[in-house]
Design a binder for these strands. Structure first.
Length: 561
RNA sequence: GCCCCUGUAGCUCAAUUGGAGAGAGCGUCUGACUUCGAAUCAGCAGGCUGCAGGUUCGAGUCCUGCCAGGGGCGCCA
């Protein structure tokens, strides 16, 4: 059973709310409705662990100077065991400092929570689907797609920790014109492999991998498809090709530690009747129009920026037809409360139509979130690498992972906000992978494992350790960092911004390394034996928090490196 | 031409969503291994947050106009 702990941040926020209400009840404050109470971490340590600027915000509403208001609020704040100091600072901040003894005690809380530490309850078990990756199944994954995978996968981890019921899905675009081109290419390569003269089609896929797959098919199946009607042969070979591509992609994502709950076939939307269903719904509601021989979704009437073709004049449904059916399936058939799609910036123009589609289907557009991340620019030694589909010159995710390592790739791709453009310099990535901050974090974890190993003979049992002995500034600083994990999870979940984890991970590791330098954990001095036990508890807790943070980012927590 | 994203230290990026002297990593420079891992620690230097206005008690963050970069504006996905 999944557990979660109450965040001290929320406890303090609630304390402030109660104080203001109490002051209003006693007539010391005029009555007004309370906004959300902001509580932040002051940048300077002398301002305490938490601070609220609420009195600055309420000054107008309360018709009082901020500093007077702060005085009133503080008067109504009850005594607690977790705050050692509450002070009012100019021009009206209230600063809170956590109590040292209370802090030390939190080590026990973390040890008891184990891998559940960091889990919070803001999702209330809401069913959410995160759809990410979803590259066209026409070849191995390209490096740039790594950002999509890492972003989506880490976000899914975070939402899970935040208490959502998360499903991870890969949408396999196994139909449409790109797929047909791929199949035609595959067939041409197959014919070539059997010594026939064949040209790959205009706009086809010239990559070497297609040649290899066709070769395999030729070896496995022989020449029988050469004697079939062309379209029949292409369909049959395409089916085998698709299986190979999907296997290839599954292998690629596996290398990054990405595991999907579900691979959803676009073709199945047509086979299972969802497309027919949504067409009937849209027609009945008057959201389609026929013009120029095509069937259009009149998005402009549902708040979209322009109309979109559903069925092309050649009778084939377009990609948007699938998108409508797919999302209808997600919300109505599969019952997701919330769907998050992770898309590259090259699809941003499509967002307003998706929202219009939601309205047309009678669904709340808020239930669909499109995360748009900026595309990765590939560089090699400072020069932009232009990828050419025409020449088949692509750089695969797999080769970069093999050069740099999965953890370093994940950390690098995760460490920026989705809105931030980023360059991926292949030469630099290999050169600098040894300096990747992920190793700094993992080293912290391995170091603790090493300490615990070292202590086994000298301090076989530290379960009776008294954490109240933890009073050293470096010890308390480490505990303070550990206490932030639930807040980071909350922040990352609320803003759909898993990149916060990478910064937190470094701060946490820094607090540990600093503590390690300052405080001897396993000392040979018998006078320190009780302190040793307390510190072994502290580092055990730190190991839990580091491991959890790494896991949320989809990285390994090594015992040694 | 219109729409979306971005512009912060030499480089790559953060900044709790409008809060207190704008912070990290890399790089530079100075120190620290004779007991638990130096893949580490302690410290120095580095800024007119692209430019100009505006809103606000308070702006890197919001508004307007410029400048620069990326992406989009297909019966491709």
């Amino acid at each position: 059973m999944r557990k979660s702990i109450t965040m001290i941040k929320h406890t303090i926020t609630e304390l402030i709310r109660q104080a203001i209400r109490a002051a209003q009840g006693q007539g010391d404050l005029s009555s007004f409705t309370l906004p959300k109470i902001p509580l932040e971490h002051p940048k300077q340590a002398e301002h305490g662990d938490y601070a609220t600027p609420i009195c600055l915000q309420l000054a107008n509403l309360a018709r009082m100077a901020p500093i007077e208001l702060a005085n009133v609020v503080v008067k109504y704040l009850p005594e607690t065991n977790y705050l050692s100091e509450i002070e009012i600072a100019h021009p009206g901040y209230i600063n809170f400092t956590l109590d040292d003894a209370w802090l030390a005690q939190q080590v026990e809380t973390i040890l008891a929570a184990r891998e559940d530490y960091g889990n919070i309850d803001i999702g209330y078990g809401k069913k959410v689907q995160v759809e990410y990756g979803s590259a066209n199944p026409t070849g191995p994954l390209h490096v740039g797609f790594g950002r999509n995978l890492v972003l989506g996968d880490s976000l899914a981890n975070v939402l899970e920790a935040a208490g959502y019921d998360v499903q991870r899905e890969y949408y396999v675009n196994d139909t449409g014109s790109q797929m047909r081109l791929f199949n035609e290419t595959l067939y041409a390569r197959y014919a070539q492999a059997l010594g026939q003269a064949a040209e790959i089609p205009e706009g086809g896929y010239p990559g070497q991998y297609v040649v290899e797959w066709s070769q395999e098919i030729a070896e496995e199946e022989g020449a029988k498809y050469l004697n079939m009607p062309h379209s029949e042969a292409v369909t049959a070979i395409g089916k085998m090709g698709l299986a190979k591509v999907v296997d290839c992609i599954k292998g690629d994502v596996e290398l990054l530690g990405v595991h999907y709950d579900h691979w959803y076939s676009e073709q199945s939307l047509y086979d299972d009747g969802y497309f027919a269903k949504i067409m009937a719904i849209l027609r009945q509601a008057g959201h389609v129009a026929e013009r120029e021989g095509a069937v259009w979704f009149t998005a402009t009437e549902s708040g979209g920026d322009k109309d979109e073709v559903i069925v092309r004049s050649d009778g084939e449904p377009g990609y948007f037809a699938s998108d409508i059916a797919y999302h209808y399936n997600k919300f109505v058939e599969r019952g997701f409360d919330w769907v998050i799609d992770v898309w590259g910036a090259d699809h941003q123009g499509h967002v307003p139509r998706m929202k219009a589609m939601m309205r047309a289907l009678g669904l709340d557009p808020e239930r669909l979130t499109l995360i748009i991340y900026q595309l990765v620019t590939l560089k090699r030694g400072g020069e932009v690498v232009r990828l050419s589909k025409r020449t088949g010159d692509i750089i695969t995710l797999r080769e970069v992972i093999e050069d740099v390592g999965p953890d370093a790739v994940r950390f690098f791709l995760l460490a920026r906000a989705a809105d931030s453009q980023m360059d991926f310099d292949l030469d630099l990535a290999v050169e600098q992978s040894a300096e990747n901050p992920v190793y700094y974090v993992q080293y912290g974890h391995a170091r603790i494992a090493s300490i615990l190993g070292y202590s086994k003979e000298r301090v076989p049992d530290f379960s009776g350790g008294d954490v109240s002995l933890l009073r050293h500034p470096a010890e308390l600083a480490l505990i303070r960092q550990m206490l932030l994990l639930p807040e980071v999870v909350e922040q990352a979940a609320e803003n759909l911004a898993p990149h916060h984890l990478t910064y937190y991970a470094q701060d946490l590791a820094a607090a540990f390394h600093s503590f390690y330098k300052e405080c001897r954990v396993v000392s040979s001095d018998p006078a320190d034996s009780e302190l040793n036990k307390a510190r072994l508890k502290l580092v055990s807790a730190a190991k839990i928090v580091l491991a959890k943070t790494l896991r949320l980012m989809g990285m390994t927590a090594p015992e040694r490196m």
